[in-house]
Design a protein around this nucleic acid. Sequence first.
DNA 1: CATAACTACATCATCTGTCAAGGTATTTCG
DNA 2: CGAAATACCTTGACAGATGATGTAGTTATG
Lengths: 108, 108
Amino acid sequence: MKISADILRGYTDVILLRRLAEADSYGYRLNKQIAEISEGNLELKEATLYTAFRRLEDAGLIQAYWGDEATGARRRYYTLTPAGQQRLLEEAANWKETCRILEKLIIG
Amino acid sequence: MKISADILRGYTDVILLRRLAEADSYGYRLNKQIAEISEGNLELKEATLYTAFRRLEDAGLIQAYWGDEATGARRRYYTLTPAGQQRLLEEAANWKETCRILEKLIIG
DNA sequence: CATAACTACATCATCTGTCAAGGTATTTCG
DNA sequence: CGAAATACCTTGACAGATGATGTAGTTATG
């Protein structure tokens, strides 16, 4: 079915926050996870992904640090800040409510 | 709570199609209805509304005609085309599926 | 009866987030 | 060695939402 860019727009940030609530992680891995969880319906484009990290970091919702891999390509890990955890709670509640409203508007 | 612009983006069109499936109507009225159904959580801005009509008409999903009001301001009515009805069915099904996927991604 | 508020339509410039396209560097495997 | 996978990043273009602004007729109020 594939989730469209217009729909994605509203949810990129929450989705990333939710993933990071589970565990610190890095871009490439997060994207693979998201693709898996979404059953292939959502795979962020790299530009979208890294733009989002920048945005979330500027907003103080996540914080980055370089992994200390002895081998392999360097990885930039992200961790949720307290503000990020707080925001995730709000956005998750928000999503449920939005779903309820849209159900009325779209289904009837 | 108010539905944000980024979330709205994905749904403006379906919401309008859904309303028009109920009955032919015009911009101002549609917007009031949407505000009411959404419990005040969604009120399209006029620019958004009329941009959407233009888009939907260009796509052949709705068709416009002027009302013949004897009194009051003129009204531009819209009606669903068969393609519009078809699209609404697809988009509604699509929404349900998207909801299911997002539930997994956002709630867990 | 003036004036505010509401009904009703429309356009333009701006902003924001997605994405195609491009780039760098390392590791693994045939 | 060459291809594919891992892993990061940036730039420019584009589409949709929106603030601002404009037009015009109608209704309510003091």
